[in-house]
């Protein structure tokens, strides 16, 4: 049994394997007075996850993946939050979320920011942050689930922009409207499986698109890419 706090929620995970305890060590809390959510993963779910994984994974790892999916599935309906598959960095107090198809170079782009702007650039989460509105502001929260680089910080940052990355010979950035952004956003969330989730999630996506500017960045692997990226969104 494990208690963690992510996105200001106290979560109890009834884990079977140690992996989750190691993964979540920076987010672990003492047994809290109120538990917002309890999740457990069945042996069937673990076996299913192991069978579809692209590489060979341990049962503990599979349990971790399933536990996070269970948590994230419940976020829209129960807590007005959602998983947004992206890398979120913080620079100068502002959060920037970068989303891309895997292999496009999200991690590379973040390394370029660090090279260009130095130690002031912090990765909040490299792959699977949770987004949540607090007092009308959209925050990205760090979580233990953060992609293969293991980039995460147990913190939150107000989001200033959403940026969809594409590879390009030249570096260029352009602001996009909801007509383009809505489809791109959909590829980065857990597809809702029931009407209740749709009815909670869609207003959150709506609010996000109305309040947070979205961009498409065509970028290469030069330091100039970070410069164009930041100047376009600051």
């Amino acid at each position: 049994m494990l208690y963690i706090r992510i996105a200001e929620l106290n979560i109890c995970i009834e884990n079977k394997y140690d992996y989750l305890e190691k993964l979540c060590r920076e987010y672990t809390i003492e047994k809290p007075e109120n538990v917002d959510m309890t999740v457990s993963v069945s042996d069937e779910q673990i076996a299913q996850e192991m069978s579809i994984a692209e590489t060979e994974v341990t049962a503990g790892y599979a349990e971790g993946v399933c536990a996070y999916r269970e948590i994230c599935k419940r976020l829209p309906v129960e807590f007005g939050a959602y998983l947004f598959h992206s890398a979120v960095i913080e620079y100068g107090g502002d959060g920037f979320a970068f989303a891309a198809k895997s292999g496009t170079g999200k991690s590379t782009h973040i390394k370029l920011w660090r090279r260009r702007f130095g130690e002031g650039v912090h990765v909040v989460n490299g792959d699977k942050p949770i987004l949540r509105f607090e007092n009308g502001k959209l925050y990205a929260y760090g979580t233990p689930w953060c992609g293969k680089e293991g980039w995460q910080t147990n913190t939150r940052v107000p989001l200033k922009a959403l940026c969809f990355l594409e590879r390009s010979a030249e570096n260029r950035i352009r602001r996009i409207g909801a007509d383009e952004a809505v489809m791109l956003m959909f590829h980065q969330i857990l597809t809702p499986q029931d009407l209740e989730t749709v009815d909670s999630l869609f207003p959150l996506l709506d609010k996000t698109l109305r309040e947070i500017p979205c961009y498409i960045l065509g970028c290469n692997m030069s330091e100039e890419a970070a410069e164009v990226s930041y100047n376009g969104m600051k």
Binding site: V182, P192, Q193, D194, V198, F202, L205, L209
Partner: peptide, 13 residues
């Protein structure tokens, strides 16, 4: 359903 002025269709169940 509508999101920010855009209608999108999703499949459920």
């Amino acid at each position: 359903k509508e999101i920010a002025g855009q209608y999108v269709v999703v499949a459920l169940g």
